[in-house]
């Protein structure tokens, strides 16, 4: 083979690997989109069901239909070069098959369910299955990236690449938003949203906004008092712990100032206004009962 042909072969190998990486970029984008919707499916099935149906249609059509067969060809050649990796490769191929089966079942269930069904137990089961699919898909993708993508270009030769590289001419629909909008209009509209909201999967239990604010204010108040208590203790604990005899006690007692006994801006040794007022009232009532009444 001439050097020109060899260079061309390397270039097509690099382009093939680049395409696999771009497929993973599209897959990551789709997994993130599904993950962002799934926990709200039970509360907003009418709005989210059509988007999820299209998302799984995309996964089945492109990722399982084109991307995984490309990877399977790559893995098959790596298996020939590195038999030690046979087990991991077999597991990844099995994950491709299992993932495709689960995606097909989810697509079918999502399309067949009514919005009311998705609000109930059936919806919760579907959500759990989608979350499990997402977890496996992400892990699977990371394993492929870590183990094989980095090694493939090093261990395969031009004969291997000639077998692997087979331009099916099909591009990821996510690469062109106009094409995506034609084939998957709901998905395209979803990707165009300026903001996404995560969480809020259930209606909040009947605590009014005002009650909620009052609870938070009380928490802040008692949190503040707790800190004041800590500060008061910290200011005086060392002095009290240092007391070993009468002389130390005298020294500790004389070093106490109103500042070291401050709690919420007031010296704790000073009687409160309430105590002074009540005490003076009682005293006055005893001294001059009639006059005071």
């Amino acid at each position: 083979m001439t050097s020109k042909a060899a260079t061309g072969n390397q270039a097509s190998a690099a382009a093939f690997m680049q395409r696999l990486r771009h497929d993973h970029a599209g897959l990551s984008r789709m997994l993130r989109a599904i993950d962002g919707m799934v926990d709200r499916l039970a509360t907003q099935p009418g709005a989210l069901q059509p988007v999820l149906v299209e998302a799984f249609a995309y996964l089945l059509h492109y990722q399982h239909g084109y991307h995984h067969p490309r990877e399977d060809r790559l893995f098959e050649r790596i298996r020939g070069k590195q038999p030690a990796l046979a087990d991991i490769l077999a597991r990844l191929a099995e994950e491709h098959r299992a993932g495709q089966g689960e995606a097909a079942r989810l697509a079918e269930d999502l399309a067949a369910a009514t919005p009311d069904q998705l609000r109930g137990k059936k919806g919760e089961r579907v959500v759990t299955r989608i979350q499990r699919y997402l977890r496996h898909a992400r892990l699977h993708m990371r394993n492929e990236e870590a183990v094989f993508y980095a090694r493939a270009e090093k261990i395969l030769n031009r004969a291997d690449w000639a077998e692997i590289v087979d331009d099916d001419g099909f591009q990821d629909p996510l690469a062109d938003m106009d094409a995506l909008a034609e084939e998957y209009p709901e998905l395209a509209a979803h990707f165009d949203l300026p903001a996404r909201y995560l969480g809020q999967s259930r209606k909040r239990i009947g605590v009014s906004r005002m009650a909620r604010h009052q609870i938070l204010e009380l928490t802040d108040l008692y949190g503040g008092l707790m800190h004041e208590g800590f500060d008061l203790t910290r200011r005086n604990a060392n002095r009290l712990l240092a007391v070993r005899g009468p002389l130390d006690l005298l020294r500790a007692a004389t070093s106490i100032t109103s500042d070291s006994l401050r709690f919420v801006g007031q010296c704790v040794a000073r009687p409160s206004r309430w105590a002074i007022n009540t005490g003076s009232d009682l005293l006055l009532a005893r001294i001059k009962p009639a006059q005071h009444e």
Binding site: H24, A25, S28, R29, R32, G36
Partner: peptide
């Protein structure tokens, strides 16, 4: 973190 990693993968395949 998974979603941040997805974003990284999307923009740096």
């Amino acid at each position: 973190i998974n979603r941040l990693a997805d974003f990284i993968r999307e923009h740096c395949p």
